[in-house]
Write a protein that binds this DNA or RNA. Structure first.
Lengths: 237, 237
DNA sequence: GCATATTTGTCCGTATGTATA
DNA sequence: CTATACATACGGACAAATATG
């Protein structure tokens, strides 16, 4: 996808090799992957318009393929489609924030509530906690944010439901949009390190109900903190 | 807005008038709506291959537009896409059944658990109950199934979360695929009428916790009944 | 096993309607 | 009101994979 040199292959062998290299995903899905990463890392800030021509030209794909990728991302709520105006990176509203946290509370606490008897498979959870602690030591705040997201994905994964996992992926991807209003990722993410560990230890001790309570309080606080930042942002303009 | 020049029926004119009548949905979305209904009513049983040529010809849309509709339905898990083979109506597996009910338990019970103080806005819920009772009196089993689905949508709507509503729509659409294994829709849906009413009355009395318990038992029984039918179906071949 | 036909995957060019300057 | 830019949808083209005889 870095260049369009495979386009002019006579017998199509290069194209086939390219597809094998990049996996079995369709072109549109690979384009969507690239754009999703760009949005998550803040390269396309909320409100940016994604022009068919410029993006398609930069990635070397046709408009039809690009439109398919746009549709995928629109369905994930990362882009909004304004009729005959084009697609824009979504600007999360305070209502979005409230709804996302309602959903998080439902899913994450529900996942813990549905747990059976201990012990639980906590490897992924533990890995996310130590990754976060290491990122904080290294002052790698972007990594810290990622580890925090992995932690919550791992919490939901305890439910063992593929559909819930996919749902949570979408919620967290959308939440990254919200996080962009926090100009200081350290102050936002760092305090939750110890709380993540506390939840992990409650689960290790087989206290699922205790973990659920900790998680609920966590979400309430996180939501309040983001709401405050949103109010400030609106007051500023 | 309306430049009502009466130019005559070129192809695009009809489509435009159609769009104005049917609202702001794109052609691909309308095609997806048609196919979704066909699948839900069993006209395209699970496993059917949807040929681009035949469907596109029948609906009078181009391949590109049709493929967009396929993509939408694939994302809703109603279709599966096999590379270079085409799209097929999804065959739900027992694993799908288990996961769908895990998710229903999570969402529906979670919605009731998150309720605040009574009274609750129960109009939609009540409408679904009476629609179901009327359908049973009229022996309209297809309507009964639809009313039953509306009931559960209304339960989830009490949470007031747009994202949860959309999620539930998808879950129930997928569940219709599962229902096709039930050769006797009456025996499957009718017993739940009285349980729907019991849940409604618990909510009317402000007893959200009681309603949640009834709903959980409902889901456990429904899941067990479907699992039994699946086991039979597998045993038959 | 081989050759042919059918279908899908991808991309292009174009016509038309709509929103904005 | 006109002009420009862009989204939408269509039809066609060719390559690749699969199905068929």
């Amino acid at each position: 996808m870095a260049n369009g040199s495979d386009r002019q292959s006579q017998d199509g062998r290069v194209l086939e090799a390219d597809r094998l290299l990049l996996g079995r995903a369709s072109t549109a899905e690979r384009v969507a992957d690239v754009l999703r990463d760009r949005i998550a890392e803040g390269h396309f800030p909320p409100g940016t318009r994604l022009s068919e021509e410029s993006i398609g030209g930069a990635l070397g794909v046709s408009r039809n393929t690009l439109r398919e990728a746009f549709r995928l991302l629109t369905h994930e709520r990362l882009l909004v489609h304004r009729l005959n105006r084009g697609v824009f990176v979504r600007k999360a509203t305070p209502e979005d924030l409230a709804d996302l946290y309602r959903l998080r509370m439902l899913i994450e606490c529900g996942a813990l509530r549905a747990l059976g008897r201990p012990p639980y498979p906590l490897d992924d959870l533990r890995a996310a906690v130590v990754a976060g602690e290491r990122a904080a030591r290294d002052r790698a705040w972007q990594l810290l944010a990622t580890a925090n997201i992995h932690f919550h994905q791992a919490v939901v994964a305890l439910a063992g439901s593929p559909r819930t996992d996919e749902l949570m992926r979408g919620v967290l991807a959308e939440l990254r949009l919200v996080f962009h209003v926090m100009d200081d990722p350290r102050r936002f993410h760092e305090p939750y390190l110890t709380r993540n560990r506390a939840i992990l230890e409650a689960l290790r001790d087989g206290d699922a109900a205790g973990a659920e309570g900790l998680l609920a309080a966590y979400l309430v606080d996180s939501r309040a903190q983001l709401s405050g930042a949103y109010a400030l942002r609106v007051a500023e303009g």
